[in-house]
């Protein structure tokens, strides 16, 4: 009593489900639109669509960050090991760079609203 229409539905469903894997299992890349730059007591939001060079005062001295083509990086830091500079260009939501000696951190934000509601 299985009909031709059933077979068609089964085949279609099978290919649909199989094709969902390559479609949704690619790494998703959400590009950030804002960077939160914080140091000691100051905190500022930088829009990534405006290129520029920004300075912020830390414990040791001035950290300089650069925004260019929707990416951001630490350009110069008065710290000794320069981990923050080695983080390179940041552009995806959730990426961050921090300079512990100078107390400066950079965190990239996107437009995700909240990640869960608990009942």
């Amino acid at each position: 009593m299985t009909t031709r229409a059933d077979i068609l539905v089964l085949l279609f469903s099978f290919f649909l489900v199989v094709s969902l894997y390559p479609l949704l299992w690619q790494p998703h890349e959400a590009f950030a639109d804002t960077a939160e730059l914080s140091a000691r007591s100051s905190k500022r939001l930088l829009a990534l669509d405006q290129d520029g060079v920004y300075r912020i005062e830390g414990f040791l001295g001035e950290t300089i960050v650069e925004v260019s083509e929707k990416k951001i990086r630490v350009l110069a830091s008065p710290c000794s090991n320069k981990q923050c500079i080695r983080s390179g260009w940041l552009q995806k939501v959730g990426e961050f760079s921090a300079c512990l000696p100078n107390g400066v951190s950079l965190f990239l934000l996107g437009d995700d609203r909240y990640d869960s509601i608990n009942f």
Binding site: V17, L20, Y21, L23, W25, R113, D115, S116
Partner: peptide
């Protein structure tokens, strides 16, 4: 409504696979 996180979409193929099996 509950978990508007893009990570949730990664589960969709798995749920659909189970749906296909149990539906069958």
């Amino acid at each position: 409504l509950l978990v508007p996180h893009p990570g949730l979409l990664g589960l969709y193929p798995i749920f659909m696979t189970f749906a296909l099996i149990f539906g069958f």
